[in-house]
Write a protein that binds this DNA or RNA. Structure first.
Lengths: 218, 218
DNA sequence: CGTACTGCTTAGGTCGGACCTAATCTTAGG
DNA sequence: CCTAAGATTAGGTCCGACCTAAGCAGTACG
């Protein structure tokens, strides 16, 4: 039977094919742009059949975001597995700090070339947002599952706030990259920004009004 | 010249065509399901050329969400035009209450049949989320534009929190509809839920932990 | 009041992504 | 070995997105 032998030759070859395709695709995409490369191009360049590409990557966008599952599940699992007594928000904050310390690029810092490629393609931007929506969904599912029925709304609002903060931090990292910030500086800047963002999350923002003074109409 | 005569016969005919197409499409979609109807089907049923459909509705999904622009801009404009001295969160809360009082179905209560049609189609669910992301973007643009540079992060976090709350309320309305709640009850329930959600937004949620007591692993 | 212009609509395409079926080949396990 | 499982292949269909050129119906202006 042997469906998922972790080290079987079969499985290794499959992964090898998958990574070969992914590597070739990323190269083509950053060279010519996502929309200017067809799946047939990728297949030809990788020396496999078109169907093999779509078997490994059901959507063309998956060729770029091949760690989507990891991004989607990570936060939800970290919150689900948090130590007893740790509030949800603290767990989310800790998880972000941990990922940042491990320099996990799924927080948004996959490199300037990658960032430029994504921003140049509406399809990739849309897919990126969808992945982050799914991450919010996964987190909400965990929280709703743990909450009493009368807490469901609170659980969903908390999930939205946490996922929203992660999203803001993700795009902030992207903007820093595109502005040409060096990696050494980026790590520090991201850490500081994350601390500020999570502090804001816990703070009372009901008085926020960026326009209290009169200024000429922007 | 006369490019946009508001009451011209030309313009009226165009709107008439647009609405005819939209009506025919909605009927076909709720009858057979979104994916089971092609653009050619819609064109044939409406008695126009395929190109006419795609001229009025660049994406197939636009045949369903033809008020997208309205949804996207409404919140941002309400916040941008808020009275002097009114905090952002208060404006967002007031706008939601106003739209609910006017029974504006873009808050999520477009009818159970509509809700079922959307939920049955991955493409429509994705488009719906994208519209809500664009709404967040629009709000963030307004707030960032009004804020001082050092307030930018705060502005983005606030935008994410408000848009997140709107999204939670939207899907809560959807769930109520799908659960078969009657319209009379729905109006009331939505109002109460909205008040609770906006209260949560202002409250300190940093202690939220739906699992403080030990329960057997869910 | 007729004519020229504008721009909505039409016809008939191309392109590419998503999906399908059946055949082929390779490895794992009996 | 030899068979079952499953990865890969070949060759196709379908349909949404997009294009160009031509047709046609209101509008504006002389």
């Amino acid at each position: 039977m042997e469906t998922t032998n972790p080290a079987g030759l079969r499985e290794r070859k499959k992964q090898q094919t998958r990574e070969e395709i992914s590597a070739v695709a990323t190269a083509l995409f950053s060279e010519r742009g996502f929309e200017q490369v067809t799946i047939a191009d990728v297949a030809a360049a990788a020396g496999v059949a078109k169907m093999t590409v779509t078997n490994h990557f059901p959507l063309k966008e998956d060729l770029v975001f091949d760690r989507a599952e990891h991004i989607i599940r990570g936060l939800a699992e970290a919150v689900a597995d948090r130590p007893a007594g740790e509030p949800v928000l603290a767990a989310a904050r800790r998880f972000h700090a941990e990922r940042l310390a491990a320099w996990d690029p799924t927080l948004g810092h996959l490199g300037a070339a990658f960032a430029r490629m994504v921003e140049a393609s509406p399809a990739l931007v849309a897919r990126e947002r969808q992945i982050q929506d799914l991450r919010e969904q996964a987190l909400a599912d965990v929280l709703v599952g743990q909450a009493r029925p009368e807490e469901e709304l609170t659980a969903r609002v908390v999930a939205a706030q946490i996922a929203g903060t992660y999203r803001v931090l993700y795009f902030t990292a992207r903007r820093m990259l595109l502005d040409g910030m060096a990696q050494a500086e980026l790590a520090d800047a991201l850490g500081r920004t994350a601390r500020r963002a999570f502090d804001l999350l816990a703070a009372d923002l009901s008085g926020f009004d960026p326009r209290p003074r009169l200024r000429s109409t922007a």
